[in-house]
Design a protein around this nucleic acid. Sequence first.
DNA 1: GATTTTTCAGTGACAAAATCACATTTATTA
DNA 2: TAATAAATGTGATTTTGTCACTGAAAAATC
Lengths: 219, 219
Amino acid sequence: MNTDLFKNAFPFWESLTETQRAEIVNNTTKNLCEKKTRLHFGGGECAGVQIIGSGRARVFITSPGGGDITLFRLLDGDVSILSAACMLNGMDIELDMEMETDCEIYTIPKKVYRKLYDESGAVKDYTMEMISEKFSDIMWLFNQFVFSNVASRIAGALLEHRAIEGGDELKLTHEDIAKDAGTAREVVTRILKQFQSDGLVKLTRGKITIIDAKKLGKI
Amino acid sequence: MNTDLFKNAFPFWESLTETQRAEIVNNTTKNLCEKKTRLHFGGGECAGVQIIGSGRARVFITSPGGGDITLFRLLDGDVSILSAACMLNGMDIELDMEMETDCEIYTIPKKVYRKLYDESGAVKDYTMEMISEKFSDIMWLFNQFVFSNVASRIAGALLEHRAIEGGDELKLTHEDIAKDAGTAREVVTRILKQFQSDGLVKLTRGKITIIDAKKLGKI
DNA sequence: GATTTTTCAGTGACAAAATCACATTTATTA
DNA sequence: TAATAAATGTGATTTTGTCACTGAAAAATC
């Protein structure tokens, strides 16, 4: 197995012993997950720590009614650190992950990461740092939800996708945006139409073209 | 200084060296904060790790418009662990704390806790565990906000205060509940009136008496 | 290639909740 | 006691969420 993946994902990699590295390399499994594959985390159920080799995944919470709200996305090289927290101290939150593209997922088993965590201060530091960062992200999201109106959350979602895509043509349905903005599809439709008549976007089936990103940012 | 405070607050206390304990004991400062005193955390501004010697404090986020939403409360013996995270890796979240009663607050300076954190695995483990726990709490709160209606959040807030007070007579204004439930005061007034006519609570100025906690729990 | 099925978007009606603008009542303080 | 502040009550309006559909476009199937 190519260790570049680990070297890039883990800043502590260089500080590990040969044995520790081998332990990781020999126990990590690779999975090819097709687009739309879903994984569930929570209730103590955590396979281990995951690294996204390639592709994009969406992490979200699911309502009792079935709807879901996006928390964040994982891109190439990202580490699903909440799995670590979930597994280290039985963090009792329920999360789901869905592949937005075909993905290569590498999984370091629970026990292997746990052992590493116990042995290495650098791994502890890394884990702490990543969890704190995620915590910050979630708090930011919380702020958006409780203090911003729907229009600005939708605008934010559009701009985030623009950053991911690296272009103004977003292949998104209203449903997709609804999940990111934490609202209903019909509401997105209405507000996007408003955006369109204000000259901010152009709407086509399954596609949204951003015309005026600057004004979107001001909403 | 009495070390019982630390012994009770920190499970790692026994594992520290004499020197480390002395370091904490000699550098911790005690402050008496009157009811309504406010402290701000964020933007790298963290005095250190705080232990509530006695009293009760409310931790919340503040909206640009001035309103605020309660995240959690700290009671006797609790440790304000987010300060730790804030200070360890510059977690960039803005939080405020307000004393709900007169409080004794003990502060372990940033540098002292940081040093301890670097030296002791037990302190790292403790810090990690506490942060994960807080993370879980916040995620739970997030779920409540995005998936529950206002009535059930208000019912939840009432029951939480009942648990804190240990009785059915709650000295709370509608404003107080609005902050806990993340809604407007008028909305609380209306829903409480509904609760009252349903025989769940009895309302007096500045006081809410819970009549039927069981039914409240079902909302 | 035509037909069926699925996905996506649009819309009106209504309900829930937030916001605004006050009025009223009860405590506190001067 | 009067004046002030704090807590509550209420109507009107706007925003957002929910429900129940319709029609259009794309995909899958025949």
